[in-house]
Simulated assay, not measured.
Amino acid sequence: MRPDKSRTQSGILIIHPEGNSFNNPTLKSLIDLFVSLGIPVDLRYGVSDAPMPAGYDGVKLLPYGKFHKFIRAVILENLCFIPLIGLVVALDDLLLYGNYRLVLGVDREGLIQAGLLHRMKKIPYVFLSFEIQFGDETSRRFKAPEIKASRDAAAWLVQDEVRARLLVEENKLDPVKKIVLPLASVGHAEASSSRLRDRLGIPNEKKVAITLGSITAWSMAADIIKSATSWPEDWVLIVHDRYGKTSRRLQDILPAIEPYLNNKIYISDEASLMVDDLGNILAGVSVGLAFYRPVWDCPSSGKNIQYLGLASGKISTYLRYGIPVIVNEIGLYAEEAQKHRFGLAVEDADRIGSRLDEVDRPSYRENAKRYFRETLDFKLHEDKILNCLKENKAL
């Protein structure tokens, strides 16, 4: 069936292969901005573990399944053969796409497809970078289509100046077209009266720290769990995977987890549909934990983690709810936390327990809210996006 051209005549296409658009603070905020402006959004994405809404006003979902995702990965990551990639994009255009004002290509695969659509149909496109693929961790052949697609991007979005400099070097991007956009949602959020900690049976007298997001080796979840066994008596830990797969994920990184599952550690297998739905997860939480460590087994977890910058959605989410943080000494947030006193940086997870009471203070909570309000809030940066839309005749 051919696409409904009338619906998408003045819409925006977002190509996001990872498929967690509604769990990404920036993408969710961008989608809501476009919809609020009356601009329809078509979202092309790969099916993943990330929950997706069955319907969302103003957004047309265009998913592809795991087999299709595998085939695309072979073409884009292994073969890196541009004509074959072009055939995939042409088929998508023929069968699914309409006529768009603008295309947003997310990360390498989305960027390459957006660039090819531009060559086919002269649609302006913007590159959104959340992960950086480094040439010395991949290959010249792997980087070539990404660099080529970077040339004609109307603008490119990145979380901070550190990652911007790296992208300029790796993708030969034009620095003049840069838009710095923190990875953050819109506005301060309030905790819910319904609390995950109560559903898990955590006594009211206990103080709660939480680690949420990806449960992987690079997020140091195993290190945090092990450290919690020696925390002060009145502190407990919630472990919460962003997609509700906590128990399964923990088996991958900590198979012998049973000795750690005592009255200090609580496992949450709940899942929030969208990043804005975390009020009940974070209600009654005193401290947010965010640790990162490069793992050199794939291009997205090596230098991409080493040069984290401000590319942490979990930290910005904690601050949005006024929750102070303890982080390890990596990325710009470690410096910002101590400078603006919304959290503390420690050398390793073993130091968490000795600093929990120090960071659990009203002043840190107020500083967390202030830093989000004055630095991160998507609303602060909305004009940059509106100007980009106007310059590309998308408004």
Score class of each variant (00 low, 15 high):
K5Y: 14
T8V: 10
S10D: 14
I14T: 05
I15D: 08
H16T: 03
E18W: 12
G19R: 04
G19H: 07
N24P: 12
N24C: 15
P25K: 01
S29N: 10
I31S: 11
I39W: 07
V41W: 04
D42E: 07
Y45M: 10
A54R: 12
V59M: 07
L62A: 06
P63G: 13
G65D: 14
G65N: 14
F67E: 08
R72T: 00
R72V: 00
V74A: 12
I75V: 15
L79V: 10
I82F: 04
I82E: 14
I85P: 02
L87W: 11
V88G: 07
V89P: 04
Y97D: 08
G98N: 03
N99R: 14
Y100T: 00
R101T: 09
L102S: 11
R108A: 15
A114F: 10
L116M: 12
L117H: 09
K122Q: 13
I123W: 12
Y125Q: 06
V126H: 02
V126K: 00
F130Q: 03
F134L: 06
D136K: 08
R140Y: 00
R140F: 02
R141N: 09
I147D: 06
I147V: 13
K148D: 13
K148W: 07
A149W: 03
R151L: 12
A155M: 01
A155H: 06
V158C: 14
R165L: 09
E169P: 04
E170I: 03
E170V: 04
E170F: 10
P175Y: 08
I179N: 13
L183R: 05
A184P: 09
S185E: 09
A189W: 03
S193R: 05
L200Q: 08
I202S: 08
N204Q: 11
K206D: 01
A209S: 07
I210M: 00
T211R: 02
T211Q: 10
T216G: 06
S219P: 04
M220P: 15
A228I: 05
T229P: 00
S230M: 07
E233G: 11
D234F: 02
W235A: 09
L237T: 05
Y243W: 08
K245G: 11
Q251T: 13
A256I: 14
L261V: 09
Y266T: 03
S272E: 15
D277Y: 09
L278M: 12
L278F: 08
G279Y: 01
V285Q: 01
S286H: 12
F291N: 12
Y292W: 15
P294R: 07
P294L: 14
D297P: 02
S300K: 11
G302T: 04
N304R: 03
I305D: 04
Y307H: 15
A311L: 10
I315D: 02
G322P: 00
V327H: 02
Y333K: 04
E335A: 15
E336H: 06
A337T: 09
A337W: 02
Q338C: 12
H340F: 13
H340G: 00
R341C: 04
R341F: 02
F342V: 01
G343Y: 00
E347L: 13
A349S: 15
A349K: 05
G353V: 10
E358Y: 09
R361W: 00
P362Y: 01
N367F: 06
F372D: 05
T375M: 11
L376Q: 04
A394G: 14
L395S: 10
